[in-house]
């Protein structure tokens, strides 16, 4: 275990040309970390604010409808859709499907485009609808 520091590291980041499959992989990890910390903190804050009463909830709404708060909310919405799409991709590939080079690349691109469209559609519906 302690010897790991002196062992040579495979050049896994430097020799490969970037492709959609690599991007979707690191996005899955990055969005997972963001949702675990920022997402669960926000969910917990939201539930605590509802429990505390109208004043605490008003403070929550003030913070989350501030422009910076909206950036966080929209970012987490995208992270949620990206993580969900990436998770579905994982479940499909766990079954042994989607490893052919062309299909894998297309699947990876769809996995990154769909969350952007879903995020845009959801927030267009919220901001342009009668709920805002």
């Amino acid at each position: 275990m302690a010897a790991t520091h002196s062992r040579p590291l495979s050049p896994h980041l430097t020799i490969w040309r970037w492709g959609p499959h690599m991007a979707v992989s690191i996005l899955h990890r990055a969005t997972g970390i963001a949702l675990t910390f920022a997402g669960l903190a926000l969910l917990t804050w939201w539930l605590v604010a509802i429990a505390e009463g109208p004043q605490a909830y008003a403070d929550f709404v003030t913070a989350t409808t501030h422009p910076l708060g909206l950036v966080v909310l929209i970012g987490l919405t995208w992270a949620f859709f990206q993580k969900t799409a990436g998770g579905i991709r994982h479940l499909v590939m766990d079954s042994g499907a989607g490893f052919e080079i062309g299909r894998n690349k297309t699947f990876a691109i769809v996995t990154m485009v769909a969350p952007l469209l879903l995020t845009a559609a959801l927030w267009a519906w919220i901001l342009l609808g009668d709920r805002a």
Partner: peptide
């Protein structure tokens, strides 16, 4: 700890009766 806090808040809302 975070899950316990969130569940306590949810329980307070669910069982709190009229505010």
């Amino acid at each position: 700890g975070g899950a316990a806090l969130a569940l306590f808040a949810l329980a307070k809302t669910a069982f709190g009766g009229e505010a």
